[in-house]
Design a protein around this nucleic acid. Structure first.
Length: 308
DNA sequence: CTCGATCCCTGGACGC
DNA sequence: TGCGTCCAGGGATCGA
């Protein structure tokens, strides 16, 4: 299940293996996960993959007109630099990887980009929970603006504001891509375990100290997972077909009934925000009822008049 | 604003 | 061997 570290791993692999390659043609098979299949068939052929980067759980294939195109790219000082990109979300089971053109198609191959070196960049996705979209300029900017802070770059202050400014439970906040982009179920559970915070605790009930601890834990875990090329649950493999190693370091996720590595109690699994949430009942104390219900205090200190 | 429920989709695990 | 059932989960959407 690709989350930030897995997507980062795939993006880095593709940056090495396909950046600089020109797309000659596009073949689409199933397209129900593509925003506008026609746009991809129309716009991709002839463009060069300038760069592959990660944006949250998306991969962003930055595209430029081919080197021999008639119109040169405007420089950075230009008034309206144009930008085009292919957004690829791997969903649960997606993968994007180069293959030799002659290789038989793997099952569930839905998109093939023929490259100028004879290879094919192929997208496979059994469950088709992924997403693909060609976006340019304003549309691209608007789409990217929907997402929250980059977990590896977010400052302690911004993290605290985003978390502590909400009544939603911390697990829901970590998973909410409008709050933070890139965190999924595995790394949410792992970071909450590391920080000793119960997944059902409301964001606004976190102390500044807890917020700081959680951010530090999240960043440390994500960085370590990237170094280990992600977690291979199910069938995640990177662009070279290698699996990741971080799943061996999971302390909470997928360990229901096993002993907590910190206090020895059994890891429990509950549903929070509609997702399986693994935690240690000893290290991650349940929020008190008053905190969960949120209904109390009749003193509303709303004095300021803010417009909307 | 926040919640849960529902849907999308397929493969794998499990029970019989 | 072959069913049927349940579960996994990111994200969109809808009603409460």
């Amino acid at each position: 299940m690709p989350e930030l570290p897995e997507v980062e791993t795939v993006a880095r692999g593709l940056q090495i293996s396909v950046a600089g390659r020109r797309i000659l043609s596009v073949t689409l098979r199933k397209t129900d996960f593509i925003d506008d299949p026609g746009a991809i068939e129309r716009e991709l052929p002839g463009r060069t993959i300038a760069k592959v980067e990660r944006f949250g759980k998306f991969m962003l294939l930055r595209l430029i007109p081919s080197a021999n195109a008639s119109q040169p790219q405007p420089g950075e000082g230009a008034a309206s630099p144009s930008s085009q990109a292919l957004l690829v979300h791997l969903g649960m089971t997606g993968n994007l990887a180069p293959h030799f053109a002659g290789q038989p198609l793997e099952k569930h191959t839905h998109v093939m980009f023929a490259l100028d070196d004879g290879r094919e960049l192929r997208y496979t996705d059994a469950r088709r929970f992924g997403r693909m979209a060609y976006l340019a300029d304003e549309t691209l900017t608007q789409e990217l603006q929907r997402f929250g802070a980059e977990p590896l770059l977010v400052s302690e202050k911004e993290f605290a504001e985003r978390i502590r400014g909400s009544k939603a439970r911390i697990k829901a906040l970590l998973l909410d891509q409008r709050v933070l982009r890139g965190v999924g179920n595995i790394y949410a559970d792992e970071s909450l375990w590391a920080a000793g915070i119960h997944p059902a605790k409301p964001g606004e009930k976190l102390t500044l100290q807890e917020s700081a601890t959680l951010r530090r834990a999240l960043q440390k875990i994500l960085q370590k997972a990237i170094v280990m090329r992600g977690s291979s649950i199910a069938d995640f493999v990177d662009a070279e077909g290698r699996s990741g190693d971080y799943q061996r370091h999971h302390k909470a996720y997928g360990r229901e009934g096993e002993k907590c590595r910190r206090c020895g109690r059994n890891i429990r699994r509950i549903i929070v925000a509609g997702r399986s949430s693994h935690f240690c009942p000893g290290c991650q104390r349940a929020p008190r009822k008053a905190e969960l219900s949120g209904r109390k205090t009749k003193r509303r200190a709303r004095v300021r008049t803010s417009k909307r």
